[in-house]
Every structure is written in structure tokens, then in C-alpha cells.
């Protein structure tokens, strides 16, 4: 009961934050509010008993993303250009899609139901046999490291590649740093490029 109220309050806060992000034109405020949104989402995940997901959300969404967005803001402008058209058609598409998705949830089994298809497929075998087959007390670790080993290997490859790319972008040309900093006009053109590309 109290947990339900906490869920409702957190979802309300998340919705309000999303609308504030939409309405604000100061990109600094938008970055701050997206950090707030990540923290609220992390609380929501904890309330839903997904502690590991909440941990990832807090580290990636609230921690690293905010810092990277700040670094981006240092290179581009701080104001969003006002849009010149009124996006009624996209709004209608989003509303219709959302209504269809909400309608589809009526056919879903209740949250956490034991006889839901997702809990009948392979989950019982993981829960019953994974200790004998893999020998790890934590079922999630068994699934990630053994049953889904190739999937995890692919994920690690993707993360490694992304890390290498980010390091190349951020730290690849230390010799040019002084030249970039001393040329404010170049920064202005950079900001225009960023605005038009977005």
C-alpha cells in the first residue's frame, strides 16, 4: 500500500520532470533536470526490486551522462534555438501510439504473476538446475556468465569499442589543445554546426 503510493509519487515526479525538460530552453537546466530524471528512475527501479538496474541507472544516467553532457555544453551553445513549426502531426502520432500501447497492456498478465509466459519458459530450469549445472549461488550471474555467455561477450565487445572510441575522441590530440582554446571564433562556428545538426 505504502509502496504503491511511493510508486505513484515517483511516477508523478518523473512526468513533471519530463514536461519541464520539454518546456525549458536553457540547455544547462535541461542537463540538470535529466540528471534528476535519472535519479528518480533509479528510485523507481529500487521500489520495483530491480536493485542492479537501479545501480546502473544511477551510475550511467545520473553520473556519467551528466558529466558528458556538461562537456558537450562546454563545446556548444547553452541555449536551444526556438523551433519555428508547430509539431501537431508528430504529437498526434505519439498520442495514438501511446494509446495503442496502453490498450495493449490490458492483455498482459498481472505484474509478477507466477503463471505469466515469461516465468514459464526457461526461468524454472534456471532457478532449479543452475546451481547443479554452473555452480554459482547467484542465478543472475549464472545466466549472464554461462547460459548467455556469447551475448555477454558481445556486450563487453560493444562497451570496449565504445570506450576506445570515446578515448580517441577526448584524448587523441593533446598537442592541439592550446590552439583550440585560444580561438573563440572557431567555438562560435562549432556551436552553429551543432545547432543545425541537432
Amino acid at each position: 500500500m505504502i509502496i504503491t503510493l511511493v510508486d505513484i509519487a515517483l511516477l508523478t515526479f518523473m512526468g513533471a520532470t519530463a514536461f519541464a525538460i520539454l518546456r525549458l530552453r536553457s540547455l544547462f537546466a535541461v542537463v540538470m533536470l535529466s540528471g534528476v530524471y535519472s535519479l528518480l528512475a533509479a528510485s523507481m527501479f529500487v521500489a520495483l526490486d530491480a536493485v542492479d538496474v537501479a545501480f546502473t541507472e544511477a551510475a550511467v544516467g545520473a553520473g556519467i551522462s551528466t558529466v558528458l553532457m556538461m562537456a558537450t555544453l562546454a563545446l556548444t551553445g547553452e541555449r536551444e534555438r526556438p523551433s519555428r513549426h508547430t509539431p501537431y502531426v508528430p504529437l498526434a502520432v505519439v498520442l495514438i501510439t501511446g494509446a495503442a500501447l496502453i490498450y495493449a497492456t490490458f492483455d498482459m498478465p498481472p505484474f509478477g504473476a507466477a503463471d505469466a509466459p515469461v516465468n514459464l519458459h526457461v526461468a524454472p530450469r534456471y532457478l532449479n538446475d543452475s546451481f547443479a549445472e554452473v555452480g554459482l549461488p547467484n542465478v543472475v550471474t549464472s545466466v549472464l556468465a554461462s547460459y548467455r555467455g556469447y551475448d555477454t561477450l558481445g556486450e563487453v565487445t560493444v562497451i570496449f569499442t565504445a570506450g576506445v572510441a570515446v578515448m580517441l575522441l577526448l584524448g587523441g590530440r593533446k598537442g592541439d589543445d592550446a590552439g583550440i582554446k585560444n580561438e573563440p571564433p572557431e567555438d562560435d562556428t562549432g556551436a552553429d554546426d551543432g545547432g543545425s545538426a541537432a
Partner: peptide, 22 residues
């Protein structure tokens, strides 16, 4: 805004701790 975000983060920490005990 920075102070507000910091304070939201602190409230999140408190909320998670309380949810655990709750």
C-alpha cells in the same frame, strides 16, 4: 538548479535507505 539537483540526489539516497527498511 545545481543545489536543487544535489538535494534531489540526497533525497534519493534517503528514500532508497528508507525503502529498504520499509
Amino acid at each position: 538548479r545545481i543545489l536543487a539537483v544535489n538535494s534531489v540526489g540526497t533525497k534519493t539516497v534517503l528514500l532508497i535507505a528508507i525503502l529498504g527498511f520499509l
